[in-house]
Design a protein around this nucleic acid. Structure first.
Length: 466
DNA sequence: TAAACGTTCAC
DNA sequence: TGAACGTTT
């Protein structure tokens, strides 16, 4: 049997259910299919991960086939040119892709092709995580509790050898090379990403093993401090699928069963985000809580731009936004703060934040991004109540008490004391002068003072409360 | 995965 | 005066 294995955000040879079954069933043709509307940073990350995946296939005597066509056209062309008789792939949970895939699969089956769909993204297929009455969970704690009682399917072995369908035939009409997909931005802004992130599954596995072996026990405490590398930093690998979440789960519980629950809990938050997207696909653009459709957003364009570029005049917020822009990543503690600041202090629609992160985050994941923004804005499932408004100055004091994170990303304030650097507009003119800071010139004044911003946000919330 | 604000109580 | 705690937003 000649099997096309369609690859998307699952660029790995380890624990790849579709590939692994295909290798047992016949000759394989691994095919990368570019989907539409990927974010800019994620495109670049995809490019780099495709390169490492290509070398992995070459090491075992094969070749990654890169298609220039959309998924249905790709399969059609492979059918005609290479007499493919089967198509295997890991299911996409992107609402539109999933519907298209299911319809197309039915068509192909109707024509006599063998189509097999696997779960390669989630710990459990989403159908298994529903309440007793069949309804989806919308509160995390009970979801987590029942999830933890389930056994997660074991991983499948890494592909080490396979029979490949010869693809050097007359199929230039379909195939292209990685570079021609044009995933690398023409104006380069990716230098900071290159410095921080190593693509590929070997790097991904090394990262998670180091974290689990050395850091997971302290995670519960250290994860809150953005200047410490206390988090796993595996999100970019999970997003492109160069790391399998089941591998992470099993490795963690096998090697550190007694000290890893806080981390496991985060993997289950991811699972929760996916099942919310699956059951409530409208949340990609509309608030989950319908009350929020009447929310009086201000949507000031200039303020939005200041937020995007890290020029709000609030050091912690600016540090985070600059970290994102430079590295494609932002520490989770700071993500919560910048999201709170955008939606509450600035009263800017959470979908604007969603789209900035979609384009700038190297770990852009459709489910996580959607869920996270719904949650922080107060609209989402099990959301923090709207009145949970972060005080960015208090957050700096609690979680970056030595201002190490702020100094790293807001260098123009480095000369200020730990106290002044967190809130430079409250520093004495003497202190500012000594540090070479001129408010409004070398560093902006805050767009909105904290107290006034908080009061304004609460007032806006009153309007949709009924 | 919050913060503000009021009250109480110990100095 | 200021922790400490409970309640409100």
């Amino acid at each position: 049997m000649e099997i096309a294995v369609l690859l998307r955000n699952d660029l790995r040879l380890h624990d790849h259910p579709a590939l692994s079954q295909a290798v047992l069933d016949g000759k394989i043709l691994p095919v990368y299919v570019l989907e539409e509307n990927l974010g800019d940073a994620f495109k670049y990350w995809t490019h780099r991960n495709l390169e490492t995946l290509q070398s992995s296939f070459r090491e075992i005597g094969g070749e990654l086939f890169v298609s220039r066509l959309p998924l249905p056209e790709t399969v059609r062309a492979l059918q005609e040119e290479l007499a493919i008789t089967a198509v295997y792939f890991n299911q996409s949970h992107h609402p539109q892709q999933r519907i298209r895939d299911e319809e197309f699969a039915l068509q192909l089956v109707g024509e006599g092709l063998i189509v097999r769909i696997f779960e390669g993204t989630m710990l459990l297929p989403p159908s298994e995580s529903v309440k007793g009455n069949g309804e989806p969970y919308q509160v995390f704690s009970p979801f987590y509790k029942q999830f933890r009682t389930k056994s997660i399917p074991p991983t499948v072995p890494r592909i080490r050898e396979a029979l490949f369908v010869g693809c050097d035939l007359n199929i230039k009409s379909i195939s292209t090379d990685i570079t021609s997909l044009q995933l690398v931005p023409s104006i380069p802004w990716t230098h900071g990403m290159d410095e921080i992130w190593t693509p590929g599954e070997d790097a991904a596995i090394e990262r998670i093993q180091t974290f689990i072996d050395e850091d997971v026990a302290a995670y519960k405490i250290t994860r809150d401090f953005p200047a410490i590398s206390g988090t796993s930093r595996i999100s970019p690998y999970l997003a492109i699928g160069s790391l399998s979440v089941r591998s992470v789960y099993h490795y963690t519980l096998k090697t550190q069963p007694d000290v890893s629950e806080a981390f496991i809990r985060q993997l289950i938050w991811r699972e929760f985000a996916y099942q919310m997207l699956i059951h409530f696909p409208h949340t990609v653009s509309k608030p989950l809580n319908p009350k929020f459709s009447k929310f009086p957003w201000l949507n000031n364009e200039e303020h939005y731009e200041q937020w995007c570029l890290g020029q709000t005049g609030v050091p912690l917020i600016d540090a985070g936004m600059r970290e994102l822009l430079s590295t494609g990543y932002m520490h989770n503690r700071v993500r919560m703060n910048v999201a709170s600041y955008l939606t509450k202090h600035l009263l800017i629609d959470f979908t604007k934040g969603m789209s900035w992160f979609w384009n700038k985050a190297i770990d852009a994941d459709f489910a996580n991004n959607t869920f996270g923004w719904q949650w922080t804005s107060g609209s989402g499932a099990d959301a923090s109540p709207y009145f949970r408004i972060f005080n960015p100055y208090l957050q700096s004091k609690k979680f970056d008490s030595e201002a190490v994170y702020i100094r790293k990303w807001v260098p123009e304030l480095r000369g200020l004391s730990n106290q002044d650097i967190m809130e430079p507009d409250q520093a004495s003119s003497d202190a500012l002068e000594k540090a070479g800071v001129v408010l409004g010139e070398t560093y902006p004044r805050p767009i909105v003072p904290h107290k006034a911003g908080r009061a304004r946000a609460l007032l806006a919330y009153e309007k949709i409360k009924k």
